[in-house]
Computed example of a mutant assay.
Amino acid sequence: MATDVVELILADHRRFEELFRALRDRESDRSTLLSELAALLVAHAEAEESEVYPALKRYKEVDDEEVDHGAEEHAEGHQALLALMEVADTASEEWESKLEELVQALNHHVDEEERTILNDARQQVSDERRAELGRLFTDIRQDRLDDNCGDLAYVRRIAKATEDRID
């Protein structure tokens, strides 16, 4: 199993893409898929913000503004996730529209994070430190998953708590 934080984050990004493809399929069990996406998305963001982002900001070669911007984009993603979760009818046009808003927000964030923060981390942070950050990321991520962080009430709380980050 990979322990490099960059590889772990990239693996989650690929899983988000798989879940988005499945969520776009009108024949899929959208409620179950959305629950998985919500839990993974929230756990991933909270693990990045609690351990990975603060550590990366200590490296002068990693762009602090990009790290801060990544946290802002997490807040936008939480808002878009909440908006989708609050639509009851997964077959409705409103649900489809909210899904596309979430997909757009997440794809934008993933693209920027991979091109900036993660490339910088891969080039500037030692293998040992990336492995250490990977273990911390995995532990926090699993703690959040165990806390049922994809639950609607939890997502409402974090969306409200992060509203001030959105410009």
Score class of each variant (00 low, 15 high):
2 A>T: 12
6 V>H: 00
6 V>Y: 05
6 V>Q: 00
8 L>K: 08
8 L>G: 06
9 I>M: 03
9 I>Y: 00
10 L>A: 09
10 L>C: 09
10 L>V: 05
12 D>K: 07
13 H>T: 07
14 R>N: 10
14 R>D: 12
16 F>E: 01
17 E>P: 11
19 L>K: 00
19 L>F: 02
20 F>T: 00
20 F>A: 02
21 R>Y: 13
21 R>G: 13
21 R>V: 13
23 L>M: 07
23 L>N: 01
23 L>P: 01
23 L>F: 00
24 R>T: 06
26 R>H: 13
26 R>M: 07
26 R>I: 09
27 E>P: 15
29 D>C: 09
29 D>Y: 03
31 S>F: 14
31 S>G: 14
32 T>A: 15
32 T>H: 11
33 L>S: 03
33 L>Q: 06
33 L>G: 03
37 L>T: 06
38 A>P: 01
39 A>P: 02
39 A>Y: 01
40 L>H: 02
40 L>E: 13
41 L>N: 05
44 H>V: 04
45 A>M: 01
46 E>N: 13
47 A>I: 01
48 E>G: 01
49 E>P: 00
50 S>I: 08
51 E>Q: 13
52 V>M: 06
52 V>Q: 02
53 Y>G: 02
53 Y>A: 02
54 P>G: 00
54 P>K: 08
55 A>N: 10
55 A>M: 07
55 A>Q: 09
55 A>K: 14
56 L>T: 07
59 Y>V: 13
59 Y>P: 05
59 Y>F: 14
60 K>H: 11
60 K>Y: 06
60 K>D: 13
62 V>P: 05
65 E>M: 10
65 E>W: 14
69 H>W: 12
69 H>K: 14
69 H>Q: 14
69 H>L: 10
69 H>N: 11
70 G>N: 02
71 A>G: 11
71 A>W: 01
72 E>Q: 11
73 E>I: 01
73 E>M: 02
74 H>A: 00
74 H>V: 00
74 H>S: 05
75 A>L: 04
77 G>Q: 10
77 G>Y: 10
78 H>T: 12
78 H>M: 13
78 H>W: 14
80 A>S: 05
80 A>Q: 09
80 A>F: 08
81 L>I: 03
82 L>V: 07
83 A>N: 05
84 L>M: 04
84 L>I: 11
86 E>S: 10
86 E>G: 04
87 V>P: 03
87 V>F: 07
88 A>F: 13
89 D>C: 04
89 D>Q: 08
89 D>L: 00
91 A>Q: 14
91 A>S: 15
93 E>S: 11
94 E>R: 15
94 E>H: 14
95 W>Q: 06
95 W>C: 07
97 S>N: 10
98 K>N: 10
98 K>L: 10
99 L>M: 11
101 E>P: 06
101 E>N: 08
101 E>S: 11
102 L>T: 02
103 V>K: 09
103 V>C: 07
104 Q>C: 09
105 A>T: 02
105 A>V: 04
106 L>D: 12
108 H>P: 08
108 H>R: 11
108 H>L: 11
109 H>S: 01
110 V>A: 05
111 D>E: 13
111 D>Q: 12
